[in-house]
Nucleic acid binder design. Structure first.
Length: 319
DNA sequence: CCAGAGATCCGCCACC
DNA sequence: TCGGTGGCGGATCTCT
């Protein structure tokens, strides 16, 4: 169970990404019945830390504080991929991984993890602007520029800026379940789970003026309320008043994923909520979520969550 | 776990 | 010419 979080900062740290981590892990939400963490911002080198936005931080802790952490977070630093990160920071990261701590990077923070060597042979991501540079400088990495975040073993890397929110909430979801992650997301006024990859931002950096997104918003909303029914891609296309071919194309352009895999993701998310509430058999959960059979639910659930529906349900019953 | 049936995805290309 | 549309067919995935 995640209880102790250390964020490593050094000169040029990006304020927004650091703020995201502080917001998710650094607030005491125990009055709301939510988990709180032993949280510390740790200076990666002596002296005050110069922020990218023109102010300085004076962290109360140094790198030695990271030795207690079971999660080490690396926010991005200005032009970090052009500079050498402080060796002591790299050592703190390696030591953390060696003793079984988890590590999360936001945006170009992945360059620091790569420099520490903990990403060797692993899948990783970073801001789409830096993905090519990351892959070039560290060819031993499997860089995926098309996702919001990647979890590979103990290490989570996330894409640009706001994707850090998605990665942090993903970690909370795996540690404490969707209900807790959703409650924190609600407090932050962000969507609890964004699907798709960076494609939606890469291909359409400026949102369509109106109409193009709304047309899908309606059919997505409709589909989510129809999950228990027999729902096909053709039916969604019909609802959207498009041919199946055009619907699939527009869908991918807007969401970054295909209609069917989006449907399956929504079904797994719904199943997750029902399993957390308890009281239903796996067969019944499968039926209510629109899976053709319990084995279908088991297969998809395991792929997404890495565990079986039954084991997941029991995890919440004992809490 | 397997095989056959069916659904979905996507490149290609003609059409408007 | 150009950008969006939609049908076709094979590869792949999913279900039974």
């Amino acid at each position: 169970m995640l209880t102790n979080v250390a964020v490593l900062v050094c000169d040029g740290v990006a304020a927004f990404e650091l703020g995201v981590v502080c917001e998710v892990f650094g607030l005491d939400r125990s009055p709301q019945g939510l988990p709180s963490y032993d949280f510390a911002v740790c200076a990666g080198h002596p002296g005050p830390i110069r922020c990218k936005s023109g102010f300085t931080l004076v962290p109360e802790y140094g790198l030695d504080r990271a030795e207690q952490a079971d999660l080490i977070v690396i926010p991005p630093y200005d032009d970090v991929y052009l500079l050498d990160p402080p060796p002591a920071m790299l050592e703190a990261i390696r030591a953390g991984v060696a003793r079984g701590a988890r590590v999360l990077s936001v945006c170009s923070g992945a360059f620091v993890l790569a420099a520490a060597g903990v990403l060797d042979g692993r899948r990783a991501t970073t801001h789409w602007m830096h993905a090519e540079e990351l892959a070039k400088r560290f060819p031993q990495l499997d860089v995926d520029p098309g996702v919001l975040y990647v979890e590979d073993g103990p290490i989570i890397t996330s894409a640009g800026t706001a994707a850090g929110i998605d990665a942090c909430l993903h970690l909370v979801r795996t540690e404490h379940g969707a209900a807790v992650a959703n409650a924190i997301a609600r407090r932050m006024v962000v969507p609890p789970h964004r699907d798709g990859g960076q494609a939606q931002f890469v291909e359409a950096p400026v949102p369509a003026q109106r109409g193009t997104n709304d047309e899908l918003a309606d059919v997505l909303d409709w589909a989510i309320n129809q999950l228990g029914e027999d729902l096909s891609v053709d039916a969604m296309a019909k609802r959207a008043l498009m041919s199946p071919r055009t619907f699939a194309r527009r869908f991918k352009a807007v969401t970054g994923t295909t209609p069917h895999s989006w449907l399956v993701q929504q079904r797994v998310l719904h199943a997750q909520r029902l399993l957390e509430e308890g009281g239903l058999s796996v067969e019944e959960v499968a039926r209510r979520c629109g899976f053709a059979s319990a084995s279908g639910l088991r297969e998809h659930f395991r792929r997404v969550r890495g565990t079986s529906p039954r084991a997941y349900q029991q995890l919440f019953q004992t809490r």
